[in-house]
Amino acid sequence: MDTAHDVYIPEGTFGVLDAGEIPVQTADWSNGLAVPMIQGALVVTGIHTGMVRATATALAGPPTAPTDACWEEIVEVSVHATTGLLRVESLEHGPVETLPPLSPAGQGWYRLRVHARGRSVLPDKVSTEPVEDYLLVTWPAPRSGADIIRGSDRIGHALAHAPGMPQPQTPAPARSAEQETLRRRLLRE
């Protein structure tokens, strides 16, 4: 099993981000754990602030071994690696360099299976020591719908209240026309 590494959580989520982009306005929050955006994904933690532990593995195809019973919650979603640089990231500290990249096949669609344990230990609290564990597994695969492999009360509550959650919006352009003009001028030199 790959080594687990600490990930600092500033505000209740961490990322499986592509090139560091966070188009959060496009997020689908409906299952309450694995939150795909148009590019990359967020993972919702139990704690609000502090440390969790994470392991990550990039596979060539779907996992074949049976899932470990120690995982309390497992949700699988499709994630798009627009740039092909999918990495586990702390939203405060940036990429977790000790965890492997998760889109070794480059740009395109992947399945992301999020395994979680301990989200009900200190919900919404500060935890300087990790009380939650996550395993993130990816493999290249065509896009398909979310799959609740192992649910929980919290996931059930999220699904039931999904219509009341922030709905995915179209992303804002990266640069305004005015800034794009300035950028083009700067690139000419």
Binding site: T13, V24, W29, L91
Partner: peptide
Amino acid sequence: TENNAQGGLNT
């Protein structure tokens, strides 16, 4: 969920 989204918005 809105509080979770705030983390993404801020970052």
